[in-house]
Design a protein around this nucleic acid. Structure first.
Lengths: 358, 358
DNA sequence: TTGTACGCGTTATCAT
DNA sequence: ATGATAACGCGTACAA
């Protein structure tokens, strides 16, 4: 009995990797070309043929080989996402927003965590590799060094950036100058005059542009109120809670400490609140604190902040990329600026009489 | 002058996608087979030939086409990562740990955010697609429904899970029962006898196994201390801060509210702290709070918790996957259990005299 | 040690 | 509307 199989199936080893387009073509009694056309929704296929092919493909649970398809077509249905950090709320929220959009359009996400500058980055980004694996690229607020920028430009792929400016690339972001201006103005309006600012170090930083722009916003606000941020009231943090604590410590050690501190990010602002608590300084009674971002957990510290809609930033970036992917011809570069909004919570208040007059 | 080019280069249009193996072979004066062997470090290539090929490949900045290579070899150098959430610290930290390991070994990460159960998940996971695009799979604490589990099993790929148990798959995690036992025992040791527990709902939950195990740990601890958690002191949260607040509210509304609350995650525990603050209940004087995880921001709320080393979980999972990828034959299934550690901070203390005697 | 030639599974061009 | 067939770029028997 068993011998029958051995005869009818000479060398047909069981193929575990699933059906091929040939199997579908045979089973449907058409050519592979027709199967391809039918499955991809192209025209020049009769409705009944298409229906039959679809049916057969379904029963064989046929899925085209991505390798073969992209070898021929040059398209991979994969977009890359470059981030400097994976463990920070801002980036994962961006990715989350972008991912849902891209997946709905049939794209997969390949993750590139390039880390801070100066780490083992050379190996991560490789022009050729990117070009051959990806249909498009999302660069999320990662500071790139000049060679990397050049590489991305030569890459002839649609590139969309979030939170940084890459010449020629579509871009989405917020107005960092305005956001910082809003935060600082809030403190000044409350009556604070001795204010401290914790920013990013524009020299050694991963978020160079953001650091520069937010400081510019601070500068404008204080100037409008005819106030100065003395040199020793402007310190650098590393955008983390711990960094915020350390920076706050330095500010609070001054002989005339500030009555209010603004941090360039919510994480650092939370650090300020922690350091204040550690020293027994009450917020907001003795120290007002404001940040920027509206981090997911900022409300747990009742932190006043300037909100940016991070999921929407991600979705918008994905949308721009998709429209670039759909093969439309190069229009001119697009830039989207999303609004920000002051969120007043309990970490800011008018300064104490005593502090104010000091 | 220009006419010379037209003659010598009949149809050679400029290929923007980079050099192919043929270009390298021509430039090095060898065959494509030799180039392939030389570049992939196989033997049967003379040292000088190899050196020449390497040099030429470098100057042409040649990179093999992943599509062509995987079409032929069946390997993609891509591993998939399945997560239920992208925006939660636990998952991104896992991914971060895994990513660094995998990248060092030349693998790329393809992200699958499958969301909570019951959402638009069917489209995300497709057996054939996964099989053809991936060399391996990391399943991070995502509850899969039975069809999905079956699909992954049929997938003949190395699969490693973190925080859940998939029959036959290598697995890494912590001892959730012990971790919960530790947390609850800490409260009981301090003298608390009226304790509340905020767990995950084992029925509608994304973290079914975790929910079940952590409750079991609680059960063992209270049993050992001859204490009961009355039915109305055991409530469900959704693992978020907001969910923790809501659940805490319910507990604190009881006629005899607990003097201590344990939450199955730090995020929910932070929610408890927030809700307590909202109601003017002081922590730890009037209410002790303990969580599990040691979330990145838990220290900002001075939260006592049971730490798990999440980055290490990710790295370990990646390591298991890599050893599965390297083609070694099936040994028996491996399970790694990483230790946990009680981290005592300021959110727990002995109960007030009055509350204790109540 | 090296080269030749075939096949991987698809898409695209042409002919019918 | 459909079919035959030539690439796509690489890996690898097998021949030399």
């Amino acid at each position: 009995m068993g011998s029958r199989d051995e005869v009818t199936a000479p060398t047909r080893r069981p193929r575990r990797s699933g059906a091929t387009i040939h199997d579908v073509a045979d089973a449907a009694g058409v050519s592979t070309a027709t199967v391809s056309r039918a499955l991809r929704g192209l025209d020049r296929v009769s409705p009944q043929t298409r229906a039959r092919v679809l049916e057969v493909a379904r029963t064989l649970s046929y899925v085209p080989s991505p390798s073969a398809a992209s070898l021929k077509s040059g398209k991979t249905s994969v977009v890359g996402v470059i981030v400097p950090f994976l463990t920070r709320w801002f980036f994962t929220t961006l990715i989350d927003g972008a991912e849902s959009c891209l997946r709905q359009s049939g794209y997969h996400l390949l993750l590139f965590n390039i880390g801070s500058r100066g780490k083992a980055r050379p190996q991560v980004l490789d022009q050729q590799l990117l070009a051959k694996r990806l249909d498009g690229l999302l660069v999320l607020s990662a500071d790139l060094d000049p060679p990397e920028v050049a590489m991305l430009r030569d890459l002839e792929l649609p590139v969309v950036t979030v939170g940084l400016d890459l010449r020629g690339c579509d871009r989405v972001g917020i107005d960092d100058v305005a956001a910082a201006d809003t935060a600082m103005s809030h403190l000044l309006t409350l009556g604070h005059r001795r204010v401290g600012y914790i920013g990013g170090n524009p020299d050694h930083d991963v978020h160079m542009a953001t650091a520069v722009d937010r400081w510019e916003g601070v500068r404008r606000a204080v100037q409008r109120y005819d106030v100065r941020v003395p040199r020793d009231h402007h310190v650098y943090g590393d955008w983390t809670v711990r960094g915020g604590m350390a920076a706050a410590g330095r500010l609070l050690d001054r002989t005339a400490p500030p009555t209010a501190i603004m941090a360039a990010s919510d994480e650092m602002a939370i650090g300020v609140i922690c350091e204040a608590r550690r020293r027994g300084i009450r917020v907001p009674e003795q120290l007002s604190v404001v940040g920027i971002d509206d981090h997911e957990l900022s409300f747990t510290h009742d932190l006043t902040t300037v909100r940016q809609d991070v999921p929407e930033l991600g979705r918008t970036a994905a949308g721009l990329l998709l429209s670039g992917l759909s093969g439309q011809e190069r229009r001119r570069r697009r830039q989207v600026v999303l609004p920000t909004e002051l969120v007043v919570r309990g970490s800011t208040a008018a300064p104490h009489r005593r502090a104010r007059s000091a």
